[in-house]
């Protein structure tokens, strides 16, 4: 009887510690799910990889500036001297 009781308590503690550990390792989320305005559109219509170098401008796509090679040293130098 005592052995059964001991095993039951051990199992409970073990399960509890597992849950505690998994919670502790998780970082807080940036945006709470209740604050997210999601738009799940038809994936077949929008199945297009978002490229960081996309040349077309779009309000919801990734559209970095087109720059030429001359920007390289000056922009790197600028961002080392300024927050950017």
């Amino acid at each position: 009887m005592l052995i059964k009781l001991f095993l039951a308590v051990s199992l409970s503690l073990s399960v509890a510690s597992c849950f505690a550990e998994s919670d502790g390792n998780k970082s807080k989320s940036l945006i709470d799910p209740s604050q997210q305005k999601r738009l799940s559109t038809d994936s077949s219509q929008q199945k297009q990889a978002a490229q960081p170098n996309a040349s077309t401008k779009s309000t919801d796509s990734q559209s970095p500036q087109n720059s030429n090679q001359e920007n390289k040293p000056s922009m790197i130098d600028f961002c080392r001297k300024n927050p950017c």
């Binding site: 994936s43 929008q46 199945k47 990889a49 978002a50």
Partner: peptide, 9 residues
């Protein structure tokens, strides 16, 4: 608005 249906890099 968050769009999560696109395949991203």
């Amino acid at each position: 608005t968050i769009i999560d249906s696109k395949s991203l890099n």
